[in-house]
Write a protein that binds this DNA or RNA. Structure first.
Lengths: 228, 228
DNA sequence: TTACGATCCGGACCGAGGTCCGTTTAATTT
DNA sequence: AAATTAAACGGACCTCGGTCCGGATCGTAA
């Protein structure tokens, strides 16, 4: 698996909250196949699928914000405990719903065609990264907002860590003598789902302006010229 | 009042969630006196004080994260409904606890001595703003984290709006032909409580480095030279 | 096929945020 | 001082996220 299998599998007795696999760096392990959830028992796998299906339908129908754990359980004809055992908590369930899109995005970054994938100069990759993430986030805004982790966990959430590490990597190439750890947080913050929601849906900014803002921000942060 | 009276007063029947007073721009209304909560009934004012006192004590003792509305009500010898009528919801209560510090900060910006207050060149004010806000936020990190509004409300929360408007104002002076609305969001994001918590408490970065990061960020965003 | 242990299931249970509404009380009017 | 009324009170109540644990099921090994 690429790496994104963050909402792991069987958490032993149950209370054990699934520990994220920490991602040493953005070191992807081989195999981009979809077969994961290592050796889940047959009934467990079936219920997991049912739950994701039900959750997806409910989210599409009533909005992700209206998703309740009990509702999903009921719609999947499964006990409530099962939902929590499988996904840990609400954010875990939402993360699982986003997993597919997450993996695709990570794959595009790690091994897709430039400028998003390897091969282009770092600043160009940064620009592409932001534009691509903006598109994806707007697509999945509902799920992203509903699934946002609590303030304490937000920055340790594996998907976000991965993306931030990637930005930090590119920044190290582009501006070697800056504090790229900190700058990467700044850049990621611009792409934050809550901010995006505020700008596009609450303030009504056109996505194009947000996109332009990203290109400008990258230019300023890297002290380069904006693209023509 | 300065403006910060965001967790207003009497919300008529009760269900009516207190509407924030929207702050046209950062137009402070006269009178910096502490007498606000316009014409609260005697018992209401007494209970409000009791509640804030109890909440403050409990937060100091067990941490703001452990604050429960029922606990505060009990500690103040008051019904639970009273807490919600007065403060709307949990974030409202926490905001009220932060109100004093908030007002002081706003006053320093609007009419305090430079470089935080008026009189210094905009870039210098920006630097001072960030450093001051970093200090304050680290001081109040507990309350800030516990009181963080939900993703949908985060960017419309009056205190944050005020600060962001201020940054946007300074940016308009410093870099007139940039998209200062968007840049102000970027700058504010660097000062976000959750990020600060992550950097200082989860990653163990020294505050000094975070501070340096701010100065560097301001320099990049405004395309100026970092201060000596 | 039976037996057995690990895994999983499900729903009762708990705590906390938030709402409702019948009752009480502070301010005002007569 | 009594009457009036708008506001405040308080706690029962609801919902929902999250936990627990006795019982059912799966996979496996004999």
């Amino acid at each position: 698996m690429l790496y994104a299998g963050f909402m792991s599998a069987a958490l032993p007795p149950f209370p054990k909250p699934q520990e994220a696999l920490d991602a040493p760096e953005l070191l992807q392990v081989g195999s981009g196949t979809e077969v994961d959830e290592p050796c889940l028992r047959a009934d467990a796998a079936r219920n997991r699928a049912r739950l994701l299906d039900a959750a997806g339908r409910l989210a599409a129908e009533h909005g992700a914000a209206a998703l309740t754990m009990e509702g999903v359980a009921a719609a999947a004809s499964v006990g409530k405990g099962t939902v929590f055992r499988r996904f840990g908590d609400r954010t875990g369930l939402l993360a699982a719903l986003l997993d597919h899109s997450e993996r695709k995005f990570q794959a595009a970054i790690l091994s897709g065609p430039p400028p998003l994938g390897p091969g282009a100069p770092p600043v160009e990759r940064l620009r592409a990264f932001g534009c691509a993430l903006l598109r994806r986030s707007i697509d999945e805004l509902d799920l992203l907002l509903a699934g946002e982790p609590s303030a304490e966990r937000r920055h340790t959430f594996p998907p976000r860590r991965f993306l931030r590490s990637h930005v930090a990597l590119l920044l190290r190439e582009a501006v070697p003598d800056a504090d790229t750890e900190l700058l990467s947080h700044t850049l990621m913050a611009y792409l934050d789902a809550a901010l995006l929601h505020h700008l596009t849906e609450q303030c009504g900014l056109p996505p194009e302006r947000v996109r332009a803002g990203w290109l400008d921000l990258v230019a300023r942060v890297t002290r380069t010229d904006p693209p023509a």
